[in-house]
Design a protein around this nucleic acid. Structure first.
Length: 199
DNA sequence: CTTCAGATGCTCT
DNA sequence: GAGCATCTGAAGA
């Protein structure tokens, strides 16, 4: 059994954490004890201090962004477009609103259950599971792991919250690709920040 | 392969 | 009331 990443892991520069999260394993412990595990392949950094794409840009505090001000190693989940959820990990020191969005992953353990969550019980859609790449998007990932706002605020450094992250196999720096972030065209100069990382 | 519209509801002004 | 850190299926090139 892998080691759970500590709070010190998250309590660093956000972009460093975003790169270091590639290859790490998200563990989703369901209420019935089942463990769904997938390995992170794509992340994005969001830093409220100076990033117009961040919900907490300029330290803006609202009921939703409150979680971004929590301790590093806290899960930040919110609803987007009325029907999808996004999973983030809070970083960079308490009181600094910053986080890493998990944009993509691949199944490692109990992939059949993850696929069932993702596609429902529709037989025709289960063929997509064979494509082996059905967690390549933040909304898809949360569907597969059955994550919603219920998990917002969970402590990622303890196994008790049903959601935590293990060491996995860190990605070599040479294999990390960089690019612009997705879906933030409104963010003016921040659209050009190369804060997206993927293998 | 590409673009495009629609789904759907919370959040902030 | 407007907009959103998305996804899907349908239609066109």
């Amino acid at each position: 059994m892998d080691n759970i990443l500590t709070r010190a892991f998250y309590d660093r520069d956000t972009l460093t954490v975003a790169r270091d999260l590639l290859g790490r394993d998200i563990v989703r412990a369901l209420p019935d004890g089942t463990r769904l595990i997938c390995r992170i392949t794509e992340t994005e950094g969001y830093i409220g201090r100076m990033d117009k794409a961040c919900h907490a840009y300029g330290y803006k505090r609202t009921p939703r962004t409150e979680t971004l001000f929590a301790r590093p190693g806290t899960a930040y989940l919110y609803l987007i477009y009325g029907m999808y959820h996004c999973l983030n990990f809070v970083t960079e020191g308490e009181g600094e609103p910053a986080a890493v969005l998990i944009r993509g992953a691949v199944p490692i353990e109990n992939g059949d259950i993850i696929a069932k969550n993702r596609f429902g019980c529709k037989e025709k859609d289960m063929s997509a599971y064979q494509k082996k790449n059905f967690l390549n998007g933040p909304g898809k990932l949360c569907r597969g792991l059955a994550l919603t706002r219920v998990e917002n605020g969970v402590d990622l450094t303890a196994p008790t919250g049903g959601l935590y992250v293990c060491e996995g196999v860190p990605t070599a720096p040479g294999q990390i690709q960089t690019g612009r972030r997705i879906g933030i065209d409104y963010a003016e100069e921040a659209v050009d920040f190369l804060w997206r990382f993927y293998v």
